[in-house]
Design a protein around this nucleic acid. Sequence first.
DNA 1: CTTATTGCAAACGTTTTGCACGTTT
DNA 2: AAACGTGCAAAACGTTTGCAATAAG
Lengths: 159, 159
Amino acid sequence: MNKINIPQNTPLISYETLLEQFKQLLKKNNLKFTKQREVILSTLYNHEGHFTPEEIYQIIKSENPDLNTGIATIYRTLSLLENANIATSISFGTQGKKYELGVKAHHDHIICTKCGKILEFFDESIEKKQEKIAKSLGFKMEDHIMKIFGICPECQENK
Amino acid sequence: MNKINIPQNTPLISYETLLEQFKQLLKKNNLKFTKQREVILSTLYNHEGHFTPEEIYQIIKSENPDLNTGIATIYRTLSLLENANIATSISFGTQGKKYELGVKAHHDHIICTKCGKILEFFDESIEKKQEKIAKSLGFKMEDHIMKIFGICPECQENK
DNA sequence: CTTATTGCAAACGTTTTGCACGTTT
DNA sequence: AAACGTGCAAAACGTTTGCAATAAG
């Protein structure tokens, strides 16, 4: 019997711990710890949701107007964070990618096609099955997306 | 025991039936049936797999050199087919979208994040589980999307 | 003082659009 | 004849890159 629980979408670790991990990662690769890199990391930590590089750029521009951060740096840092598994991305059609912090509890989405409501869920047996499928096809699994579409209880009533 | 791998799926209906559906759709929307639109439809029907607009453009260029089909028409027709649920698309990051015919047996996708290769699979137990999850959250399930991302056997070797 | 990082602007690849001409109805 | 569709080239879009100036170690 698998529990279908709705995880909270707050990060699993404190910002201090995350920052420390990030600094160690940088040191290990002879990379430098810059104000820009820290601001991008903290912005991802402090904002819930999925953001395009452009959106992150705008947030930083308004919250840190003093630091004149270029969009190229956003892209470069997001790639860095993604390669380090600190951030993850999802592609949204032709319009590009959206990033979120990778250190959150994994979850999938169920979406109401009438009102657009989104709930999150997690199912252990599906997760395991996906690993199994990837393995059987010779793939090294990295990530997955699962979305269920349907009509939510409220919208079923107000028909 | 669930069957996991399925061969790249063949269409469920004959080309004649599909073409007839397409013509009716066009008529219903006061759109015109053109040689270009037919060639794009038949190309999708006759080629198994998932193709970028550019790839479809190249196939048509070599198989129908007489018909001077522009890439813009490929894009416009693919959108049309997708909106009509005759074709479906998958986006893979910055590299764009790949299209396939939508009139196939239901299946999910596993996608190589290095080379963009797409395989199809179907797993009965996951399908059942999804129904169960939707039900437990009070949703009336309509559809779902599942994509697994990873690195394919070939790309694991050529690292 | 050495090396990595930055912002800027130009380059890039994919997708969309404006337009005059062609085709379908 | 009217209306939609076409190819073409230009524009738009998100992303990447070359470079000289700057900041971190």
